[in-house]
Structures are given as structure tokens and as C-alpha cells.
Computed example of a mutant assay.
Amino acid sequence: MKNLIYIILGAIIGAVLTYYFCPRQLEGEESVKIVKPKNVISVKEAKVLNDNWTLYRKAAVDSAAQKQGRKEDDRSTYWSLTDIENYLEFAKNESDSLGYQMTGIRVYLGVYGKDADESKKDLTTMFIVPTGSKSKASSLNLNFIGNDEDVPGGSPLNRGTGGGGGYPQ
């Protein structure tokens, strides 16, 4: 009989501890499932791509910077996570108002022209453009690979912080 009391008491204490220490979803809170995007590459692959860019493109690209008195051209652009998150929400909203369903982004290389200020004149930049497909009036809106286009009138994101150097070794 004594053993049965200990077993029951242990089960009750275990249940109470489980209730208080095990994570649980709060009422009204959605669980967030984190999915690794397809086409994520390894750090090793990124270094190979960076090294190939250095081998095949750096001299040609840096020649424009040297004409402006800089040692090298920018080869990367940085935007804060907040800027990217805000831009994605803004671009989704703007695409919707333009009659498009935003399904992605495209990153373009660009060059500031001769009319840019001295610090950017003729140097490389990168900008992001929203992509998507024309929204349909019906509830059936299937997006197939290859149907996405740059959203006409969609506002591009530019003016990140230019980077030099290259991918960290």
C-alpha cells in the first residue's frame, strides 16, 4: 500500500513538473515552422564562387574603380535584416496594388553612371526588384516556374552599404 502511494505521488509530481517545464503553444499563438530554403549552398561552395569571381572578374571590375582613384570596386552590398523585412512587406503590398502577386525577388548588378556623386561614380551597385505574376480575378491563382516577371512599377531597393574585400576566408 505504501508503494502505491509513492507511485501515485510521483506521477502527480511528474505531471505538475511536466506541465510547468515543457514548452507548449499558447492560446492564439501560431507555431512557426522553419523550413530550409531550397538552393541553400554550403560555405565551401560560396567560397569557390567568390574565388572564381576574383579569378575571372576582379581585374576588369576594379579597373573602373581605379579610374576614380579607388583601389577596388564594390563586390557586395549589405542591407540590415530590418531593411530587408520592411522592403519585402512594402514590395508585397505595392505589388498587390499594382495587380501582381509577389512571389520572389531578383537581384541585379548595376553601375552608377558618370552623373553620380564622386564616391559612387562609375562603380558597381546591386538592387533588388520584386517579381511575381499578374493576379487573376478568380480564386485559382497557380504560379508555375517561369511565369514570374519583374513587377512593372515595383519599387527597387538600392543603396545598401557597399562592400569590398570578398567572401570571408
Rank of each mutant, 00 (worst) to 15 (best):
Gly146Tyr: 01
Ser155Ile: 06
Glu149His: 12
Tyr108Glu: 06
Val35Ser: 05
Phe21Val: 05
Leu98Phe: 01
Ser63Asp: 14
Ala116Glu: 01
Phe127Lys: 03
Asn147Gly: 10
Tyr19Pro: 01
Val129Ala: 08
Leu142Lys: 11
Asn39Glu: 04
Thr54Lys: 11
Ser95Tyr: 01
Asp148Leu: 06
Lys36Thr: 09
Val107Tyr: 01
Glu85Pro: 00
Lys47Gln: 15
Arg24Cys: 04
Lys36Gly: 01
Gly104Ala: 11
Ala116His: 04
Asp73Lys: 03
Asn50Arg: 02
Val151Trp: 00
Ile128Trp: 00
Asp74Ser: 13
Ala59Cys: 06
Arg159Ile: 07
Lys2Ile: 06
Leu4Trp: 10
Asn50Cys: 11
Glu72Gly: 05
Phe90Asp: 05
Glu94Ile: 07
Ser135Leu: 14
Lys2Asp: 09
Pro23Gly: 14
Ala137Phe: 09
Asp74Cys: 12
Tyr20Lys: 13
Asn52Ser: 13
Ile13Lys: 03
Lys92Ser: 10
Pro37Glu: 12
Gly99Pro: 01
Val111Ala: 11
Tyr108Thr: 07
Val129Phe: 07
Val61Gln: 06
Ile12Cys: 06
Leu140Ala: 15
Asp115Gln: 08
Thr124Tyr: 04
Trp53Phe: 04
Val61Ser: 12
Lys114Ser: 15
Gly153Met: 01
Val43Lys: 04
Leu109Ala: 13
Gly166Phe: 03
Ile7Asp: 03
Lys114Arg: 08
Ser133Tyr: 14
Leu88Lys: 00
Gly166Ser: 02
Ile7Glu: 10
Phe21Glu: 05
Asn39Met: 03
Pro168Phe: 03
Gly104Lys: 06
Lys134Val: 15
Lys136Tyr: 07
Ser97Phe: 07
Asn39Gln: 08
Asp51Arg: 13
Glu29Met: 12
Lys92Thr: 00
Leu17Val: 15
Ser76Pro: 00
Val32Ser: 02
Leu55Ala: 15
Cys22Ala: 14
Tyr6Leu: 06
Glu45Asn: 10
Lys44Thr: 05
Lys2Thr: 09
Ile8Arg: 02
Tyr78Cys: 10
Val111His: 07
Thr18Gly: 15
Ser139Arg: 12
Ser97Met: 06
Leu49Val: 08
Leu81Ala: 11
Gly113Asn: 08
Arg57Val: 12
